[in-house]
Design a protein around this nucleic acid. Sequence first.
DNA 1: GCTATAGTTAGCCGTATGCCTAACCAATCC
DNA 2: GGATTGGTTAGGCATACGGCTAACTATAGC
Lengths: 114, 114
Amino acid sequence: MPNQSYHLDKIFHALADPTRRSVMERLCRGPASVGELARPFDMALPSFLQHLKVLEQSGLLRSHKVGRVRTCQMEPQALEMTERWLVEQRTLWERRLDRLDDYLIDLINKEKEQ
Amino acid sequence: MPNQSYHLDKIFHALADPTRRSVMERLCRGPASVGELARPFDMALPSFLQHLKVLEQSGLLRSHKVGRVRTCQMEPQALEMTERWLVEQRTLWERRLDRLDDYLIDLINKEKEQ
DNA sequence: GCTATAGTTAGCCGTATGCCTAACCAATCC
DNA sequence: GGATTGGTTAGGCATACGGCTAACTATAGC
């Protein structure tokens, strides 16, 4: 059931690991092969591959294989969705603070009237 | 070692669960007690408490106890940090696309000159 | 065709996660 | 002060996660 929430689960989970975030940061600078991506990390290739799989299943990364080399690239749309959620939460919160503000101002004004 | 990256680990991990995101969504509408937060979920209280602990350790949630009731509220600053990371990634990506654009335009212009 | 290169699959292992129940404080309420 | 309410701790259990090695497949290069 790939609904919205499930998708966010995957994306946030994917980003909750420094190796995977690092890969995404690298991919911002352009596509790269698996080996190229793996090089900076002190980790066996199969372990690293699993990280790539997590990223790919979250939709943050796309890849295609040509010959024997698989090239990966970022899928920025997935980031956008996540960003939207975060911004929405913060906005709701701020709106609430505004309402609280209004409420308090109202209260103070009523105090004055008495 | 609570460095920047470690912090992001915690926050993204905290948000990678629908129950915890739901709690945050609720908290956008204002503070609430543990019991109040737990009510919508079909889950034993101790299980739910663990989710709250994860949120609190990530810095997304603050709480204080008065008498026997613990009140929780959102800490929007933690969200901001996460948002910054996401926006930065996307921005870098877009900047890259722009550079690629420039490069291609350049290439086309040189083609024309020949 | 043989060898080196780039990735992949299978399977193991310890720790973390997410759920539960049962038992336990500690304020309130009557 | 005894019962109720709101939350907490302890401990158990199944599954997921993140790492590893070893063995394998498939392309590229000579």
